[in-house]
Measured scan of single mutants.
Amino acid sequence: TETYETTDETEARKIAEELKRRGLTFRIERHGTTIRIESD
């Protein structure tokens, strides 16, 4: 499991693209301005 936290929408998108490219599944949670991406 890898966890990323960012407040930057663009960075979050880049992380999501990278995880997809590596064939990982992940979920995105939003907590206020923080975007949390957690891979399975």
Rank of each mutant, 00 (worst) to 15 (best):
S39L: 15
D40A: 12
E11N: 04
R22S: 04
H31D: 12
R21A: 10
E18F: 10
E2C: 15
S39I: 15
Y4Q: 01
E5Y: 14
Y4H: 03
R30T: 10
G32R: 02
I37M: 01
D8E: 05
K20T: 14
R36S: 03
E9F: 08
I35G: 00
E17N: 10
A12M: 05
T7W: 05
R30L: 12
T25M: 09
T7Q: 11
I15G: 00
E38F: 15
A16D: 01
E17T: 09
E9C: 13
E5W: 14
K14H: 10
T34Y: 08
R30Q: 09
I37K: 00
E38H: 14
R22L: 07
I37T: 01
A12H: 02
D8R: 03
D8G: 02
E5M: 08
I35R: 00
G23D: 03
E5V: 13
E5F: 12
T33G: 12
R13S: 09
K20G: 07
E18N: 10
A12W: 04
E17C: 15
E2D: 06
D8C: 06
E29K: 09
I15L: 05
E29Q: 09
T1P: 12
E17L: 12
T7V: 06
T25W: 11
I28D: 02
I28W: 08
I28G: 02
A16L: 14
L24R: 11
K14V: 09
A16E: 07
T25R: 14
S39H: 08
E11M: 09
L24D: 03
T25F: 08
G32M: 03
E17K: 10
A12L: 04
R27K: 13
T1H: 12
K14G: 06
I15R: 03
K14S: 09
R13M: 14
T3K: 10
A16I: 15
E5C: 13
S39F: 14
F26P: 08
I28A: 02
A16M: 15
T33L: 13
I35F: 09
L19Q: 01
T3A: 08
E11Q: 08
E9H: 06
E17Q: 12
I35V: 04
T10K: 11
K14C: 14
E29F: 15
T34W: 10
A16Y: 07
E29G: 05
E5I: 14
E29A: 07
E17R: 11
K20D: 06
E9M: 08
I37Q: 00
K20M: 13
I35L: 04
L24W: 07
R27W: 11
D8I: 04
F26V: 13
Y4I: 04
E29D: 07
T25S: 13
I15H: 05
E9L: 10
R36I: 12
T34D: 02
D40R: 11
L19P: 00
E9D: 06
Y4S: 01
R36W: 07
A16G: 06
E18L: 08
T33I: 10
E11V: 12
T6S: 03
I15M: 05
K20W: 11
I28M: 06
T3H: 09
K14A: 13
E11F: 07
S39V: 15
E38Y: 15
D8M: 04
T33N: 13
E18G: 08
T7M: 08
R21Q: 08
L19V: 01
R22Q: 06
T25L: 09
I37G: 00
T3L: 13
T25Q: 11
E38W: 15
I28S: 03
R21H: 06
K20E: 11
E29L: 13
R30V: 13
T1N: 10
A12G: 03
F26E: 02
D8L: 05
E17H: 08
R13A: 13
T3N: 06
E9N: 04
R22K: 07
E2K: 11
R27G: 03
D8W: 04
T10M: 12
E11L: 11
I15Q: 02
L19T: 00
G23V: 01
T1Q: 11
K14E: 10
T10S: 12
G32A: 03
E11R: 05
R13W: 13
T25N: 13
T33D: 14
E17M: 11
K20S: 11
E29V: 14
A16K: 06
E9Q: 06
D8K: 03
R22H: 04
T1R: 14
R13T: 10
I35M: 02
E18K: 07
R22A: 05
I35H: 01
E5S: 07
E29C: 12
T6L: 07
A16Q: 11
E38Q: 13
I28P: 02
E38V: 15
R36M: 05
T6Q: 01
H31Q: 09
K14N: 10
E2A: 10
E2L: 15
D8V: 04
I37R: 00
T33V: 10
K14Q: 12
R36N: 02
L24S: 04
E18T: 07
I15P: 00
R30M: 12
R27S: 07
Y4K: 01
T34Q: 06
E18M: 14
E5R: 04
G32I: 02
I15D: 00
T3S: 10
D8T: 05
D40G: 12
E5H: 06
K14D: 06
D40E: 12
F26M: 04
T7Y: 06
L19D: 00
I35T: 02
F26I: 10
K14Y: 10
E29Y: 15
D8A: 02
I28E: 05
D40H: 13
T7N: 10
E9K: 06
E29W: 13
L24A: 06
A16S: 08
E18P: 00
S39W: 15
T6D: 01
I35D: 01
R36L: 07
T33Y: 08
H31S: 08
E9I: 10
L19H: 01
T33K: 12
R21E: 07
E18Y: 11
T34E: 03
T3Q: 07
R21N: 09
T6K: 01
R27T: 13
D40L: 15
R21I: 07
L24H: 08
D40K: 11
F26A: 05
T3F: 14
R21W: 04
D8N: 09
T34I: 14
H31M: 10
E11I: 12
L19R: 00
A12E: 01
R27N: 06
L24V: 11
T1K: 14
I37N: 00
T10W: 12
T6M: 04
E17D: 11
R27D: 04
E18R: 08
R36E: 01
R21M: 08
H31T: 09
K20N: 08
S39Y: 15
E17W: 11
H31I: 14
Y4L: 02
I28F: 06
T25V: 08
E38M: 15
E5T: 11
E18D: 13
E38A: 08
F26L: 05
E17A: 12
T34F: 08
A12Y: 05
R21G: 07
Y4E: 00
T34G: 05
R36A: 03
T7C: 09
G23A: 02
K20H: 11
A12C: 11
L19G: 00
I35A: 00
L24M: 08
T10E: 15
R30W: 14
K14P: 00
T10I: 11
F26C: 07
T3P: 03
E5D: 05
E38I: 15
T1L: 12
Y4P: 00
R36T: 07
I37F: 04
T6R: 01
I15Y: 10
E17S: 10
G23K: 05
A12P: 00
G23Q: 03
E29I: 15
F26D: 02
T3C: 14
E18C: 13
A16F: 07
F26Y: 11
R22M: 06
G23C: 12
R27I: 10
Y4N: 01
K20F: 09
K20A: 12
K20L: 12
I37L: 04
Y4C: 07
R30N: 06
D40W: 15
R13K: 11
I28L: 05
Y4R: 02
D40C: 14
E5K: 04
T34V: 14
K20V: 11
I28R: 02
T1G: 12
E2Q: 12
R21D: 05
E11T: 09
I37P: 00
G23F: 02
I15W: 08
E17G: 08
T3D: 03
G23W: 02
